[in-house]
Amino acid sequence: MAVCVAVIGKDNAPKYVSCLNPNMELDFHYKVHNALDVVEEKMSANGKASGDIRELYLGLLNSTDDHKIFGYVTNTKIKFVIVTESANTSLRDNEVRMMFRRLHSVYADVVCNPFYNPSEPISSKAFNETVRNMMAGNL
């Protein structure tokens, strides 16, 4: 399913980046980082257009020959980015949304932990486990 999952903080610095293939980590870091341009664009466009109800799912941010990059932003400006393989043609938009919702919920669990300092990178085992599952395809 997903080949890379990233959580990016309010200040656009990464809080969590995990890739299915550790050899491609640098490549994915660049991809995710680059997609932030589109996230910012979409956020400012969303901010202008809508009132109270905000769509958190930003949809497809970028696509390359090999990968598709999707985005999601919480109300506190935490960005989630999921990279999938373009070859995976059976992946539906709704499934990507589901992954994001799932991610959001585990992220909320992480920040609810009183011992977690929100300015630090995420190192929660439960979060890691969920992300691993997402990447293994058992959502």
Binding site: D11, N12, A13, P14, V17, E25, L26, H29, Y30, H33
Partner: peptide, 12 residues
């Protein structure tokens, strides 16, 4: 300057 806060990219 663009990759500030991304240690992996900064180092690269």
């Amino acid at each position: 300057t663009a990759v500030e806060g991304w240690p992996t990219l900064e180092i690269h």
